[in-house]
Design a protein around this nucleic acid. Structure first.
Lengths: 376, 376
DNA sequence: AGGATCTACTGTAGCGGTACAGAAACCGAG
DNA sequence: CTCGGTTTCTGTACCGCTACAGTAGATCCT
């Protein structure tokens, strides 16, 4: 015995890649070990009711012994035809999307609602390499298109794949479903609130909602500025008939930087408005700050209205009058609308027979940043 | 000719499932149309250099005509062995993770850094259904484990799958890589700053960093409270030697609600501390608010130090002295560490030969919420 | 006793691609 | 005219799993 060379000496005769190539453990490996068919092992993992509890135990034990984790997800996806994941298509810059607490809260709510269904959420950057375009190459059962102004090529891929789609904060294309904020009534209420306080010289501070002059509107770009347009429409529906004197100031982006520039422009106006309707709480918060820096009182000299009712609205001094959107609800609705769209594509029972379009309500919240129009 | 029945009349002879079952368009369909092999069509899409430009054009045109979008992602994943996606394992509650601006900014940075590589990010809720456990069932090339205190079952799945893993804000297991915040020096500097201002009665307001009494520490739970422990260790490394009188107040969770309770406890202390070191800016911000409500001046009566340098730190009144962590950098590093770990698993050249462990620096930022110890 | 119905397991036939090793045609050089 | 080297396309062999239709034996009912 002692002269017998160690068995290991003969292992891996050709010493392939230095041990990296350990033959993979598959269903078959386990099946051979237990002495059953591959199908039985598959059932032991995926359909326990198809075999006796006793055999299942033995199979699972053998699998454990061999270090078999379970059916390979990739292979399972191919064989089953479902992926267990849905995509979320984001704006050009994913980072920006996450900086925005509104977007972040929305994603969180979506993921949370989806978790119990076992669906994972895949974030799809709309850009990609030449080689890899997530919207085209990531396996998924459906996708959420979230306010993707501009870059429509990713959306085009999703459409071509005929994936169940839900457009959020953006009008839908084709037979996709949609979840839109019912912005107009909320915006209208905010404007009416200012009118009721006696304001007649009112400004908007909002992101651009039209295309640059001379650019032909591309139908594929229908989503651009949709949200701003709706909010402006809501504001105007109250202010127009009342004959208020309206000044619109456009800011490039919903960021503190641009908001600050916009606020300065606003306060430099020869006939300074007595109230301002802002695209977001961030903008409103910035206006408050700039006004304070100039020694103007809010709401004494200037009433400010925000939008979203984000945490910032309550953190601001004075706390912002704003239009609340229920982000948690929006996320939940988006998630269920998507799962229903997927069910529809699969022809499941009880699934909707066509695309669904949901409006999420908005509501005016009056706090301390608005007050009666100053005398004189 | 006019007597010939319309060709359509004979289409779909067995009228299968009412049109739902339109035979799927695959590589083969296109290949037959063009009269080439399946392989050639595959190459037309995936490896253009393998065929003549002219033929490729014809293939692509035919594909377009037939409505063939491109190789099926699921099948491609199986055949190629790579998925084009990485997972991010989140805390029990995905929603909570996204509420937290720190976490949100981190994810954004990760996704942004990953975008150019064409990798999508899959959010893995650590829970799932009985049937579906994302950490086990989602195809991915690797994963980030982000501060997943407690629930280790999902992590266990990832480990068993032998996926390339990067632990973030949590000590790594096995041969996983890690990206940790270098909390101690920053925390130490914050504590030293208070000492330099003359403070000797100092409180901590932090999330629990130990296990409840009587619970045996489970090695698998090594990650629990890691961050708090590090910060406390940093604070103590300065305060201990200086002989400061330290009171630790534990809060259940890094939320405004618990922070508020903690702040009250703190201010009710018989011998009220003159300064407080907080686990986060959110906690510090809350302390400022509660102090203000009680008519205490910050920093006149109480110095407050935050942590993270989140946007809240600058929004607070007075602006918070805090310890900055560079979230964008942390995200970038986490992303590249993960791609390197994946490269290593694939045995690519230039890949690291072992797990990598990166420390992200922290830095004290002095603002207005700290001042000299009050006289008397 | 003789079907009808279950339960427990197996075999076959894909799912829709890609890798890799040819084979055939082409091409300039010796 | 032959020969090595390209370029261009093809055939085969998987990737690892699941759906579905069976088969065989056990159980039940009348």
């Amino acid at each position: 015995m002692s002269t017998t060379p160690a068995p290991d000496a003969y292992a891996e005769p050709h010493g392939s890649g230095g041990g990296v190539g350990v033959a993979r453990v598959t269903l078959q490996t386990v099946a051979d070990e237990v002495g059953v068919s591959r199908m039985t092992v598959s059932n032991a993992f995926s359909r326990p009711d198809q075999l006796s509890a006793e055999l299942r135990e033995r199979v699972l034990a053998a699998a454990d012994r061999l270090g078999y984790v379970g059916p390979d997800p990739a292979a399972r996806v191919l064989a089953r035809g479902t992926t267990g994941a849905v995509g979320v298509l984001l704006t050009e810059s994913v980072g920006t999307a996450f900086q925005d607490p509104i977007a972040a809260a929305f994603f969180g709510s979506v993921a949370e609602e989806l978790a119990p269904t076992g669906l994972a959420v895949a974030l799809l950057p709309s850009t990609g390499t030449e080689q890899t375009v997530p919207a085209r190459d990531v396996p998924m059962d459906g996708a959420l298109v979230y306010s993707c102004a501009g870059d429509m090529t990713a959306v085009t891929w999703l459409l071509r794949r005929k994936l169940p789609l839900v457009f959020v904060d953006q009008p839908p294309t084709g037979d996709a479903s949609s979840v839109l904020l019912d912005d107009r009534p909320g915006a209208r209420a905010a404007a009416q609130h200012l009118l009721d306080l006696g304001h007649r010289r009112i400004a908007f501070l909002t992101t651009a909602f039209g295309l640059p002059d001379g650019v032909a509107p591309d139908p594929a770009d229908a989503g651009i500025g949709y949200v701003s347009r709706e909010r402006v429409a809501g504001w105007m529906s109250a202010l127009g008939p009342a004959g208020a004197q309206v000044t619109a100031i456009h800011i490039t982006d919903n960021s503190e930087e641009f908001a600050e520039a916009g606020a300065r422009t606003l306060l430099d106006l020869p006939e300074r408005p007595t109230a301002v309707l802002c695209f977001s709480d961030l903008v409103a918060w910035t206006v408050e700050r700039v006004a304070r820096e100039r020694g103007l009182a809010v709401p004494g000299d200037l009433s400010v209205v925000g939008y979203d009712d984000s945490p910032l609205a309550r953190a601001a001094q004075p706390q912002l009058t704003t239009v609340r959107q229920d982000l948690a609800a929006k996320g939940r609705v988006a998630a269920t609308t998507l799962t229903r769209a997927i069910a529809r594509a699969r022809g499941e029972e009880g699934a909707p027979t066509g695309p669904e379009h949901v409006l999420v309500p908005t509501e005016l919240v009056v706090r301390a940043s608005t007050g009666p129009v100053p005398q004189g």
